[in-house]
């Protein structure tokens, strides 16, 4: 069970949060101009890497804010937490 440092509320138990999968997948501004493959890339393809993964988390039972987490999937260590809209850190 992680301890997650919500950028708005501080450190809280993982049970207050929900994970929203991989971060930095931007919804295309003009979906109609994409072909099936390009749209499928946005819709379905996720990296699911071993190592540092950037993902979205939501403080669902707290401030309900979304934010980004850089987590090492091999040991669940959270390397960095940063707000939506910020660029992923170089790790």
């Amino acid at each position: 069970m992680f301890l997650i440092n919500c950028p708005y509320c501080g450190e809280r138990d993982q049970s207050e949060f929900v994970s929203g999968g991989e971060a930095h997948i931007v919804r295309p501004k003009q979906p109609t101009e994409l072909n099936d493959d390009q749209w499928a890339e946005y819709l379905f393809m996720r990296k699911n890497i071993k190592g540092i993964q950037f993902e979205r988390w939501n403080h669902a039972h707290g401030c309900r804010k979304w934010f980004n987490v850089a987590r090492d999937t091999s040991n669940d260590k959270i390397e960095k937490i940063y707000k939506i809209g910020e660029q992923p850190p170089k790790l």
Partner: peptide
């Protein structure tokens, strides 16, 4: 509610 908040906060701030 969660889905709408998600879009508002992350895609259409």
């Amino acid at each position: 509610m969660s889905k709408l908040e998600d879009y508002l906060q992350t895609e259409w701030p």
